[in-house]
Simulated assay, not measured.
Amino acid sequence: MTVYENIKKYAKKRNMNLQDVALKAGLSKNMIYQYNKGKNPSLETLTKIAEILGVSYNDLAGDNSTINAKSKKVDIKDAMQDDYTIMSYGGREIPPEELEMIRRILDGGK
């Protein structure tokens, strides 16, 4: 399924129309329809839409490898120490107590 079809499917399950989803994501009301015409959402936009629909990024992106993502190399240890970096797994934020456990594992169990 395409990104557009996935957004449409999950919006319908939530009794939402595509215009409502777009507006809640901070997009113009007809932006999601552009995804059906070949335009691809940014990683940030698709993540916002997934959050609104209560699904993961992967649920919307599926096998689509054409999502516009700007890759940026990040040192995970540095990111883990930064309180402003949002860490997530499967489209959901990692709870603080689990982040602390991950920090200890990365520091060698100290």
Rank of each mutant, 00 (worst) to 15 (best):
P96G: 09
D75A: 09
D59N: 15
N58T: 07
T85E: 07
D82V: 11
E97G: 06
A69I: 03
K24C: 03
L99N: 02
L43H: 05
T66F: 06
G38M: 08
D83Y: 07
T66P: 00
K9M: 14
E93I: 15
S65F: 08
Y57D: 02
D63G: 11
S65G: 14
S42L: 07
S71R: 11
D75Y: 11
A22L: 05
K70A: 01
G26M: 09
Q19S: 15
K39E: 09
N36L: 10
D83Q: 09
S56A: 08
Y10H: 11
V3Q: 05
N30A: 13
L23W: 01
A11R: 04
S56K: 10
N17I: 11
S88Q: 13
G26P: 12
I7N: 00
I32C: 09
R103M: 04
L53H: 03
N15F: 00
P95E: 14
R92A: 15
Y35L: 09
P41F: 10
L27H: 10
G26F: 10
L27F: 15
L27T: 06
E5H: 12
G62H: 12
Q81R: 13
V55I: 07
G38Y: 08
I7P: 00
N17A: 06
N64V: 10
G54C: 03
P41C: 10
E93M: 14
G109Y: 00
L43G: 01
A25C: 05
K73P: 05
I32P: 02
Y84W: 13
R92F: 12
I32F: 05
L46M: 12
E98T: 11
L43I: 06
N58H: 13
Y10A: 06
V74K: 09
G62S: 09
R92D: 11
R92C: 13
L99H: 03
Y57L: 10
I105K: 03
Y33L: 14
T47W: 02
